[in-house]
Amino acid sequence: MAYFLQQLINGLTLGSIYGLIAIGYTMVYGIIGMINFAHGEIYMIGAFISVITFLVLGELGISYIPLALVVVLLCTMVLTGVWGWTVERIAYRPLRGSFRLAPLISAIGMSIALQNGVQVSQGARVKPIQPIIQGGLTLFHQGDFDVVVSYLQIFILVLTVALMIGFTWLITRTSLGRQQRACEQDRTMAGLVGVNVDRTISMTFVMGAVLASVAGLMVTLQYGVIDFYIGFLAGMKAFTAAVLGGIGSLPGAMLGGLLIGLIESFWSAYFTIEYKDVATFGILVLVLIFRPTGLLGKPEVEKV
């Protein structure tokens, strides 16, 4: 029981990170019907920006942790958001209205370019960073096993919940959110009522990038090391999460992320850690056989 609970906590934490990345895939797919293969790299860039900001703050002698966290969070979100915006402007917008595969190919190119760009500018070695949030709470003991939730896990879970509340409010209650949904449901009609469709698509990339950047920050804090290649596997997992939850569905992306986090952590705990990715993708295949639109997905809508 205690062991189970510990895996639940670990799985939810990991799942939060996947879920935050998955939202970017699902939103971009929802609005322009394209898988943004460069999204994993945006997350990787977010992680790098967070590391760099931590190092800069360290140089400046700012050692009060809560302040440092807030500054790093804001810098990471803003700077990665700008990256998301830029990628859309230079790699996808010029191809809008072109044949269907063009933006996809451009996305793959963008992904390689960003990876290699970071490799060249930051070096290929892993970037370590000192642990920032240490310690934890022991929830209870059972026999000789302690169920521990680290302060870092609490930070990740609370931040994820806060972001989800803010994001849900943005999408369901604000004019920007309505414009975003309008473009997703009928782009031509959105234009007729006065929505600036291009700007709204840009904003969608920015929102996805901002959420992914927070995931990047979380991974930096969690593992303490990052490299230019982390975007690939995390991107694959998050994309899987988006498909599992039902691509195009925002709650689905978060649900898919949590499920994949849980599957991974339970599989690693009870079976073998080597095959956790096989388990993840195996379950994706099973779900898609029985529910081709994913868990919360709506029937396929063709975007033109």
Partner: peptide, 26 residues
């Protein structure tokens, strides 16, 4: 200039109220 287009093009997953809000966007 406002248009009620062919096929109505209601935003299907928005409420009636939200559709009217969209009309008042500008």
């Amino acid at each position: 200039i406002a248009q009620s287009p062919e096929g109505r093009r209601i935003f299907p997953r928005m409420t009636v109220y939200e559709n009217l809000q969209m009309g008042a966007l500008r």
